[in-house]
Design a protein around this nucleic acid. Structure first.
Lengths: 121, 121
DNA sequence: AAAATAGGGGAAAAATTTGTCCCTATGCAA
DNA sequence: TTGCATAGGGACAAATTTTTCCCCTATTTT
């Protein structure tokens, strides 16, 4: 695993939540798991822009942080299911609020973002 | 400026809000500006772990995204003040909720995070 | 004269995060 | 028998973000 060189800062609540939610796909993983998409391959399909590898890694981190739990069925081919823990559940209202804000301001945001980052058509 | 190689995805609200809030210090910048710390040097002092350069850059991005506005006083030495725009204000309840969640679960989070990232004493 | 102040910005280095590629195993389908 | 699905993991490469270092402005203070 990568060994951090700059020490973490965990001073305030915002630092702490940042530590567990930072990661390009984590919020979406929590969201889709909450929606009932439990298996890694389903999540993959829901988030096709993420590489398989990084989803695996971020799922592991969410698990280590006790936001999701994992059940491994001893079958071949392998089957795994994730669900939110009670702790993870407590984040759902916040994630909803984030998504809602984004949806609510969708056009404006899209325009503002594209103004800085022109992309090919 | 750095030119992105992987295209953005701006499909859902979560993508959009991610685009404007991602950045190691942005949420804290918004938070402190909301608390009345308006000048770059104050913000610097509030967030000593961030480099001066990156705060400048992220303030510029927040400004481009119309979450904060900037007033430059034509004096020497220079004086600049930021404030939240109305648009930026609408994020404050969400940022509060994030901070509150972090504070509420402070001990648990600290323990979980340190379990993965042991740091020097 | 030399610092100190307050803010900005370029260039390059360092840190960190993501992505690619390849390998594991087993049962089923073509 | 080759290929696919399913999940995980190591090694390394690429992308991205953040930091470091240095310079510039124009007064005021030492």
């Amino acid at each position: 695993m990568y060994e951090r060189k700059i020490p973490l800062n965990l001073n305030c609540g915002l630092d702490l939540i940042g530590e567990v939610l930072y990661g390009k796909w984590k919020i979406r993983l929590l969201w889709f798991i909450n929606q009932g998409h439990k298996r890694p391959s389903e999540l993959q399909r829901k988030i096709p822009d993420a590489s398989r590898r990084v989803l695996t890694i971020q799922l592991k981190e969410l698990e280590d942080h006790e936001l999701i739990s994992k059940v491994i069925y001893p079958v071949v081919p392998p089957k795994v299911e994730y669900s939110l823990t009670d702790f993870g559940q407590t984040l759902i209202p916040i994630i909803s609020a984030l998504g809602f804000w984004g949806d609510e301001h969708e056009e404006r945001l899209r325009a503002l973002i594209l103004k800085r980052q022109p992309t090919a058509p």
